[in-house]
Amino acid sequence: MKRILLTLVLGVLISANSFSQEKLTWHTDVNSAFEIAIKENKKVMLFFTGSDWCGWCIKLQNEVFKTPDFEKWSNDVVLVELDFPRRTAQDEAIKMQNRQLQSIFKVRGYPSVHFVVPEKMPDGKMNLNSLGKTGYVRGGASKWLEVANTIVNKTI
């Protein structure tokens, strides 16, 4: 009976954790992410990462982005992952888009997280109003979210 109960409890915990991670939507197409942000009146979080080689990026993902606190917090922003993998294949259009944004935001190291407010101009072009940036912050989700909140709560 104890074994069955333990198995049941572990199963529920594992499925709850899997379910919570499925709720996060990380966009890779910035144009669609910007359109969503404008439509829903949300700010955008641009996460520049080297997902398959950058130790600090992986650490940030595990300590912050894969937590219930981040999941709850992220409901108020549109998440965009701009990945620069070394071993994982990537579509050429995504590579070009990511390199262009890396250049625009002058990203020199990873992880780098920029917060912006997209604004569609009358001529159809997109303007990105920068709120600020951060990277890995020691102290887990609560410390990282403290820094992120300071940035996203700025007014333009």
Rank of each mutant, 00 (worst) to 15 (best):
V9P: 06
G135C: 04
N31D: 14
S32Q: 15
F115M: 03
E119S: 03
T155A: 02
F65S: 02
S103R: 14
T25P: 02
V12S: 04
A33T: 10
W73S: 03
G135M: 04
I4C: 05
Q102S: 12
G11P: 03
A37W: 01
T28K: 05
I38R: 06
D83L: 02
E63W: 11
V137I: 09
I151N: 02
L101A: 09
N41G: 14
K72Q: 11
N41R: 14
H27A: 10
T25C: 14
K120P: 08
Q61I: 05
W73E: 09
I104D: 04
A141Y: 09
W56E: 12
G132H: 00
V137N: 09
K23M: 10
Q100S: 05
K23Y: 04
F47S: 13
L131I: 07
D123T: 02
G50M: 02
K72E: 14
L79R: 11
Q21T: 14
S130Q: 02
G124I: 10
G55W: 07
F19D: 02
D69M: 11
F115Y: 08
L6V: 09
P111E: 12
S130G: 01
F115C: 00
V44L: 05
F19A: 11
V113P: 01
P111S: 10
G140I: 09
K125S: 10
W53E: 05
N149D: 07
A93S: 10
R138Q: 08
Y136V: 04
R108H: 13
K106L: 13
D52M: 07
N17L: 08
T155V: 01
V77E: 02
E22C: 13
I151F: 00
S20Y: 07
W144R: 00
K133I: 00
Q21C: 11
E146P: 01
V113R: 03
T7F: 07
N62L: 08
K154W: 06
K23R: 13
S15L: 08
F115D: 02
G140T: 10
K154Y: 04
V30W: 00
S32M: 13
E92C: 01
V9E: 05
I94D: 01
P111C: 10
E71K: 14
C54Y: 00
Q102F: 09
I38K: 04
V9Y: 05
N62W: 04
S32L: 14
K59A: 12
R108E: 15
K143A: 13
P122S: 12
K43N: 04
A89F: 03
L131K: 01
K106Q: 13
S142Q: 15
R138W: 04
R86F: 14
A141W: 11
K72M: 09
A93T: 09
Q61C: 10
D123Q: 03
K125V: 08
K39Y: 15
T7D: 10
N62Q: 11
A141N: 07
T67D: 15
V44W: 00
T134D: 02
K66Q: 15
K23A: 12
V152G: 00
S103D: 08
F47D: 06
E35H: 08
T7Y: 06
M45T: 01
V44E: 01
L8M: 13
S32K: 15
P85E: 12
R86I: 05
G140M: 10
L60W: 03
L131A: 03
W26C: 15
D69T: 12
R138F: 07
S51D: 04
K66W: 09
V152M: 00
T28R: 03
R87K: 15
L131W: 03
T134W: 09
H27P: 06
